[in-house]
Design a binder for these strands. Structure first.
Length: 564
RNA sequence: UGGGGAAUAGUCUAGUGGUAGGACAGCGGAUUCUGGAUCCGUCAGGGUAGGUUCGAAUCCUACUUCCCCAGCCA
């Protein structure tokens, strides 16, 4: 089965587009947009929408705009704009010269509002926010008309002008569409179009003190840009009648809004509000903490853009509310990293091993292959010497059944090196902890092959004690212990389900010397352990690695089963 | 009690009146100088009840369950 590319995705949105193309609804054009609000960092859920919108444009030889929906200066910041641009670029998408801002259209939107007032379809209301809520009615009861609903067009025009001129305080007045206070769709009960906000805007500064609401602004933005298919998430489904109403009343170009289900992932949260809270309360180190589902967090963790794009393609697009298992994301990651990542040896929890019959001062430079999936990656030299470190987990004094690794009297292979046999175990007298192993090696097995065809059941990774580099390794686990942390028991908060063991720092790991010049962001497979990525926290004296994802571990599974 | 949506294996997803297919997860085996990768096999599915039809996941009717909506947020 082809799991990586080429087959055209098929989904209900592309079905709609195919149909529109056949009927020539938009003159054969396909033009989408990704419209983030710059009030936080992008996360993997946004990546789904980005891949969808840019992907559709690419599939149909169309265009996709990047447009910041910057209509609420209270929550929006330049930092977020910058991070969003970086993240989408990193994901591999290009909007060419089509970077737009809703705020670019404020003047045009104002004129459209005047047009609606002149048509008797909008009015300035002086009810307070509380009163408006009260007048709106409820889900089951209709609302009531505001006493200001029937002002003259002239008065509305005049008042709206004074709103723009900054003559009224925040909250004192709003411009509302005059639709239907009895509509069964609450969005149609005279929705607010403009509110007064004397707030500095990241782009327009203090030019404006009235700002358009989403429902009013969004369709106009799409219309102005000539968008054909305006793709958004399910919760906007019952806003569509309003989207359509504004464009129809104005009589301007009318894109088609299509809604799809947003992405949910197990063991994490996908709401900007919750992610912001984790950042602000210091539960994580920042928006780019490698445990965060943000694009910047995944990047720092070591995810590749390819793996995220592939994931987005494989989860599909539908209207069914769904939650994808994190295992699928990790599968896509491993699939990519397995092909890309150079192999190295690194020992996370070192156990000292002395090869008794190996000459004291001898060093051998042994050949190790860089990537068995891609022979073109070549080989490198790894130094072997009398004292080594192996993984503590690779030795058991009293091995359980099915444990193939090192144990007293047992022979194993050191990868690319020699067969060794454990002849003695030194322990700490107080604690009984194993502190050192004594082994012998078979010189005839140099390079790791037995000339006699002698078999060994395990191959271990190792480093030379003398030549290894010291490194810090950060092991990450799921941020939450609950599959759906937002599904809280009453009184509880999603933070109650934070995993106390989501980060484990190993301060004195040993890695092979070829890693001396590894640069931040570079990714490796530590053989038999997982994929790791150099963190920007690394310094000249100490490399810091993030564990991106462990390798699949059949042994761990067997061990777990036998525990039961 | 109103309106808008959605229901296919443990989790996603295809199929658009004609043998329910794929992926992830699981399980078993082969192979392996990574208990990785690879390969092979296997488990398991149309919310319920009726109806139309030679034939229904698909069409019709009724019901059930879940999600969203009462911001001057998006």
């Amino acid at each position: 089965m082809n799991t990586t590319n080429s087959e055209q995705p098929r989904d209900f949105i592309r079905d709609i587009i195919n149909n529109d193309l056949q009927t020539n609804k938009y003159g054969g054009q396909v033009h989408t947009r990704f419209p983030p609000e710059p009030n936080g960092y992008l996360h993997i859920g946004h990546a789904k929408a980005i891949c969808l919108n840019f992907g559709i444009a690419a599939d149909y030889n169309g265009l996709c705009n990047l447009r910041f929906d910057d209509t609420n200066p209270i929550k929006e910041e330049q930092e977020y704009i910058d991070s969003i641009i970086d993240d989408i670029r990193w994901l591999g998408f290009d909007w060419e010269n089509r970077l737009y801002y809703a705020s670019d259209y404020f003047e045009q939107m104002y004129e459209y509002a005047v047009q609606l007032i002149k048509a008797g379809k909008a009015y300035v209301d002086e009810l307070s926010a509380d009163e408006i809520r009260d007048y709106r009615g409820t889900l089951t009861h209709p609302g009531r008309h505001s006493p200001y609903r029937n002002r003259s067009i002239e008065e509305n025009l005049d008042l709206f002008g004074h709103m723009r001129a900054g003559e009224f305080p925040d909250g004192s007045r709003v411009l509302r569409a005059k639709i239907d206070m009895a509509s069964r769709n609450l969005n149609m009960r005279d929705p607010v179009m403009y509110r007064i906000l004397h707030s500095e805007h990241p782009r327009t500064g203090d030019k404006w003190c009235i700002y358009p609401m989403y429902d009013w602004a969004h369709g106009l933005e799409d219309s102005i840009e000539g968008i054909t298919h305006s793709i958004c998430t399910l919760e906007f489904e019952d806003h569509r009648p309003l989207y359509d109403w504004f464009l129809d009343e104005l009589g301007i170009y009318h894109p088609h809004q299509i809604e799809f289900a947003r992405l949910n992932l197990t063991y994490t949260v996908m709401s900007k509000r919750m992610l912001l809270e984790l950042v602000q309360k210091g539960q994580v180190s920042g928006w780019d903490d490698p445990r965060m589902p943000t694009i910047s967090g995944l990047r720092r963790r070591g995810y590749t853009p390819e793996s995220i794009r592939n994931f987005s393609r494989r989860i599909g697009v539908a209207k069914t509310g769904s939650t994808i298992g994190i295992a699928l994301l990790e599968h896509c990651l491993r699939q990519d990293l397995n092909k890309q990542a150079q192999r190295v040896m690194g020992v996370l929890r070192p156990l000292r091993v002395v090869i008794d019959n190996y000459p004291e001062d001898q060093v051998e430079e042994l050949d190790a292959v860089n990537n068995p999936e891609y022979p073109g990656a070549g080989t490198r030299k790894v130094p072997f010497s009398r004292v080594l470190y192996i993984e503590r987990d690779d030795f058991r004094e009293d091995p359980p059944k099915n444990f193939f690794r090192l144990a007293p009297g047992r022979e194993v292979r050191l990868r690319y090196a020699y067969f060794i046999t454990c002849v003695d175990v030194s322990k700490d007298e107080q604690s009984g902890e194993v502190v050192e192993l004594h082994c012998t090696y078979d010189p005839a097995t140099r390079g790791g092959d037995s000339p006699y065809g002698r078999k060994v059941k395990a191959t271990l990774h190792w480093v030379s004690a003398k030549y290894a580099l010291e490194a810090e390794v950060r092991l990450y686990n799921q941020l939450f212990i609950k599959e759906d942390p937002t599904n809280v028991e009453d009184g509880a908060d999603f933070k109650a389900y934070l995993n106390p063991n989501s980060l484990e720092i190993l301060a004195s790991c040993r890695v092979e010397p070829s890693l001396a010049n590894a640069t931040p962001g570079s990714r490796y497979q530590f053989e038999r352990q997982g994929y790791f990525c150099v963190d920007p926290d690394s310094s000249a004296g100490k490399i810091v690695f993030n564990r991106t994802v462990p390798l699949r571990d059949t042994w761990a599974k067997i061990e777990k089963h036998e525990d039961k």
